[in-house]
């Protein structure tokens, strides 16, 4: 018997998952460094770190889900999850802010400055403008237009925000079919988005000459969209988990914070995309 079953705040017993997670991060980062520098075995260390991380995530989240289903988490634990998910999303906002800040900075300050009289001697004939690969890179590229795939992707993500909300309504009304159908639709839209983005990247590299090396346009383009894509991938994995749990009969109309957390995250990813569409693709 432990403190936890007195109806008080749930305090978990000692756990091996965190230390496995630390070993995983060490393997991942060390492995990635060795791999980048082409040291023999680096790839294997990276892979081992990744496998360990996946195992840890499965185990740890599995345990949390189990505890939640046993009803060990009281109201206070639940509101703790809400606070911390909110702050976590705020930290993600700031992460994106760093890259958006870089984009705004180069567009309004560094690129125009390179065309100024100060720099005329260093970079004669550079006319700036946007998009640009900068004064020193010779290979030309074509920028990504906004009104093809990106516009479709906007529509797709916005609709996925609707479907996940529809699923939530279903959950709250006790309509499990609506819940599951809504989640399946959301996951499908997420995957479709990712597929289209992969196609877009392929198109950029093979036909437009738009690569990571395409000056500061390429750098900001791939950093922002890539980071966002990573978040969509994570969000989709989270949605799939929630779908699995819904199929397994988890969640009640009153208590389902895991679902809400994932939908908060999904809406956040959605809003970031709007910023991307406007500032990276459109303007």
């Amino acid at each position: 018997m432990s403190a936890q079953s007195h109806g008080g705040y749930y305090l978990p017993a000692p756990s091996y998952w965190p230390i496995l997670g630390s070993a995983a991060l060490l393997g991942l980062t060390l492995g990635a460094t060795l791999f980048i520098h082409q040291v023999a075995g680096g790839g294997w260390v990276l892979l081992a770190g990744f496998a360990l991380l996946v195992w840890m995530l499965f185990g740890w989240f599995g345990q949390v889900i189990g505890e939640s289903e046993q009803g060990l988490y009281n109201q206070q634990v639940d509101s703790g999850f809400r606070w911390s998910m909110g702050w976590f999303i705020f930290s993600e906002v700031m992460f994106f802010a760093a890259f958006f800040g870089a984009l705004f900075y180069v567009r309004t300050l560094s690129v125009p400055d390179l065309t100024s009289a100060n720099n005329a001697l260093l970079w004669p004939g550079y006319t700036g403008g946007w998009p640009t690969q900068g004064p020193g890179i010779k290979e030309a590229f074509e920028p990504m237009g906004a009104w093809g795939i990106p516009a479709w992707n906007t529509l797709i993500l916005l609709s996925s925000g609707v479907t996940v909300t529809w699923a939530h309504w279903g959950l709250k009304r006790g309509n499990r079919t609506q819940l599951i159908a809504g989640l399946i639709a959301t996951v499908a839209l997420g995957l479709l988005f990712l597929g289209l983005q992969a196609y877009e990247y392929h198109h950029a590299y093979t036909e437009l000459g738009l690569t990571l090396g395409a000056g500061v346009y390429g750098a900001t383009f791939f950093m922002l969209t890539g980071f966002h894509g990573l978040h969509v991938t994570l969000g989709t994995i989270m949605l799939i988990t929630i779908l699995g749990r819904s199929l397994a009969g988890h969640f009640t109309p009153e208590r389902h914070f895991a679902f809400e957390a994932v939908s908060w995250y999904w809406h956040f990813v959605d809003v970031v995309w709007l910023g991307l569409f406007i500032f990276v693709y459109w303007l």
Binding site: E92, F95, A97, V106, S110, G134, G136, I137, F222
Partner: peptide, 28 residues
Amino acid sequence: PVLAGAVTMLLTDRNFDTHFFNAAGGGD
């Protein structure tokens, strides 16, 4: 997270050919 973003840009400038901090590519 902002520091993480800054060092991530260092990482890609170092290893993946980006030009965030390189004037030749329009960066700074």
